[in-house]
Design a protein around this nucleic acid. Structure first.
Lengths: 175, 175
DNA sequence: AAGGTGATGTCATTGTGTGACGTCATTACT
DNA sequence: AGTAATGACGTCACACAATGACATCACCTT
């Protein structure tokens, strides 16, 4: 809902009531809660799509690919999802950064994403233990790369930024 | 507050009101909110202590240690914090697992922990970029190892379990 | 045209979180 | 000792989120 994002950005999240959002969108409070289970959820409507793309790319990776290689494929696909929405992502990130409640919601979305990816990895060769670990770490790398991308990255290069960060992470063990 | 944990375990988190908790503890609703900023926070009172121990261990690691080695030191110290509380941790984990709101809070606590650890790593040799990444990944490894420890681990071996998982993660790049 | 179906609005209720304010006990200062 | 300051706790009142029950209206199907 664009109305909500605009209001959050203009006057802050806490200062914006659901009634405000509904009013600007030409709705009632009650109706708002039919579209979104709660106030925060407005900012996370694309989450399922991301989950789906990421997990699908992991599943579609070549048969011979290792978990890490499958993960990399997923990360690149996930990066593509955000093509063209860099400006929107900036505003959204600013709003979220300003509010702990929203950060909480963001984090649990990541957790859900990780569990979907773990599922996809299990559908290949990985043991549950390592699938969970690999997925979790992959998603966190995505999260950090996303933060850098929003802050100062090339709008069209989220995927590459993520892949690079994954490499850098692997090198941390070589000391 | 033990009263809260007991009630959450007996009747569920949502079914337990702040008034219930306060009553059992011999307090008022208003007083409860003087001790805890919100209802969830009851279950996260030890968080600052963990942050402090973890970060301190990272700072105290030998001068020559790499970021990864300093991280490992922090993880072991963090493991020691939970010596003797395995049974309590089980109940707590069960309550949290049953409620998304609590999971959200747990995740943001981890995020705070990661940022403290990142700070500690920056106090050594690491660049901000890699400090954030290393800390984040370290904390996630801790989180996953903790989950396994709660589910079926040796009550006295959280630290070793965590260290082992960190090794396994590093090996994922070797394929 | 009648009836069903879905989208939206109205109303009422519960519970969280917070501000304003009062009371009481303890400590500190003269 | 007497009194002022401080802090812990309670009472009251309120805004808002969230949700269930029910009404209304538009539109589609036959």
């Amino acid at each position: 809902m664009g109305a909500a994002l605009a209001l959050f950005d203009e006057q802050g999240y806490d200062e914006t009531t659901v009634a405000d959002i509904a009013a600007r969108a030409g709705l009632t409070r009650r109706t708002f809660f039919r579209y979104f289970p709660d106030k925060r959820e407005v900012l996370f409507s694309g989450a399922e799509h991301l989950e789906q793309v990421f997990a699908e790319a992991v599943k579609q990776a070549p048969e011979a690919a290792s978990p890490m290689q499958a993960l990399r494929a997923g990360l690149c696909a996930a990066g593509d999802v955000f093509a063209g929405v860099h400006p929107y992502a900036r505003v959204r990130a600013r709003v979220i950064a300003a509010n702990p409640e929203l950060q909480e919601r963001e984090l649990i979305k990541l957790e859900r994403l990780a569990s979907k990816v773990a599922e996809a990895l299990e559908g290949r060769q990985a043991t549950p233990r390592l699938a969970l670990l690999t997925a979790d770490i992959g998603v966190r790398v995505f999260h950090r790369a996303f933060a850098e991308w929003v802050a100062n990255g090339d709008p069209d290069a989220l995927g590459p930024m993520t892949a690079r960060m994954l490499d850098e992470l692997g090198e941390l063990w070589d000391t």
